[in-house]
Design a protein around this nucleic acid. Structure first.
Length: 377
DNA sequence: CCAACCGGGGTCTGCCATAGTA
DNA sequence: TACTATGGCAGACCCCGGTTGG
């Protein structure tokens, strides 16, 4: 308890003395430039160095990777007030291990600038969505930034209200928070922009229930709210032009099997699709066939160029005809290593891939094993 | 019994740029 | 002017099994 009291005293005493900060920062700058050459020197000649030593000692004791933390957010180390002990106590009380706490601070040092009250409030808001502290700890361990990047709890509260007002269920919010926790640190305005954008897409495509459409698309793709509208717009336009779809088909695609495509970064979808076309043209497919093929399983646009080509090559090498692949696009779902090992096993079992069905290549392991056993038995 | 069909589940951060702020 | 809050970017699948229809 003693260190905590000390910390509060320090806070009160130093609050507002800005001139210290400037001296602090020049010193830090000097150190960060020089420490690689000369090693870190501890200077305790005056007060601010003591403060700094205290911070560094605290972090060191906690097992924080100070070099990493300084590199990520040097500004935090120039502050006169930090709450690392409070943060530690807080997270411990929520069930986080010391290692997790150290890792969180190493990766997002600004976490130590938050007050207990603010943390507590924010945590409670997250708990309105998540069923247990442990789940939240797991998210923080994965992505400390999404929890700590904003200190604006009112905004968080408004986001939650907004999502409910859009008609998302608690289950859906839970999914959002688990998969894309950053969503909740977005400004309310940013989230609104995306929702309104999606509604406008829906309306312009002649759908009569934009609210339902938005719910569907967000549930299907929980990452969408951390994408820029520019990105999503580009990808929607790509899908429409690539498959020359009518409104209804496009809508069904983007809130169904193509929902994930909307996440793809700049021109990635276009690049991959171009690659798919080239590869399949080289194997004698027509434009129409390719379009139909990709549309039947749009997820393949996710595949990097090399990965797609490698998979196709691997299948072709085994005398599997391109038309067989076109009929069973899901075989591209399997990893290259799964394809390779299964091909080998099936061939060993006397299965003729060029004349038989190739779908076992993409079955679940359980079903595949059963099949193999039968072939061998 | 067998396989096609098809939807679901996990997972997705860590960095940089910059306007705003004290 | 340093620091904070926030927006945005690149990155780039694989697997499972319930239901259905033959």
């Amino acid at each position: 308890m003693a260190p905590r009291n000390l910390l509060y005293m320090r806070s009160n005493f130093l609050l507002g003395s800005r001139c210290w900060m400037i001296r602090f920062s020049t010193e830090i700058l000097f150190k960060s430039v020089s420490f690689r050459l000369f090693g870190v020197k501890r200077n305790n000649a005056d007060g601010e160095s003591l403060e700094k030593d205290e911070l560094l000692n605290n972090l060191l004791t906690m097992g924080v990777d100070i070099d990493m933390a300084k590199k990520r957010q040097p500004g935090v180390f120039n502050r006169m007030v930090t709450n690392e002990q409070d943060l530690k106590m807080f997270l411990l009380s929520k069930g986080a291990s010391k290692q997790v706490i150290a890792s969180i601070i190493s990766r997002y040092p600004r976490a130590i600038t938050r007050t207990s009250e603010s943390l507590s409030k924010r945590w409670d808001l997250w708990r309105k969505i998540m069923a247990s502290d442990l789940e939240i700890v797991n998210i923080l361990e994965r992505s400390p930034e999404s929890f700590f990047r904003s200190n604006n709890n009112l905004n968080l509260e408004n986001n939650i209200k907004f999502f409910y007002s859009v008609g998302l269920t608690r289950k859906c919010l839970c999914r959002l928070l688990t998969n894309a926790p950053r969503t909740f640190s977005n400004s309310l305005d940013l989230n609104k922009q995306m929702v309104e954008f999606l509604q406008s897409v829906c309306l312009s495509l002649g759908h009569k229930d934009p609210a339902d459409f938005v719910r569907k698309i967000i549930f299907k793709n929980p990452f969408i709210l951390i994408r820029s509208t520019k990105r999503v717009k580009t990808n929607i336009e790509f899908l429409q032009s690539a498959f020359s779809l009518n409104s209804e088909e496009l809508l069904a695609l983007i809130c169904g099997p193509g929902a994930e495509i909307l996440d793809l970064s700049n021109d990635y979808a276009k690049r991959n699709y171009t690659n798919i076309k080239e590869k399949l043209f080289s194997l004698g497919c027509t434009e129409e066939e390719v379009q139909k093929f990709v549309f039947s399983y749009p997820d393949m646009i996710y595949l990097a160029e090399k990965k797609f080509n490698d998979k196709i090559d691997c299948l072709i090498q085994e005398k599997i005809n391109i038309s067989q692949i076109m009929e069973s696009p899901r075989v591209l779902d399997s990893s290259l290593s799964t394809l390779k090992s299964r091909i080998k096993e099936l061939v060993n079992a006397g299965y003729n891939l060029s004349t038989s069905n190739i779908t076992p290549l993409s079955w679940s392991l359980k079903r595949y094993k059963a099949k193999l056993k039968k072939l061998n038995g």
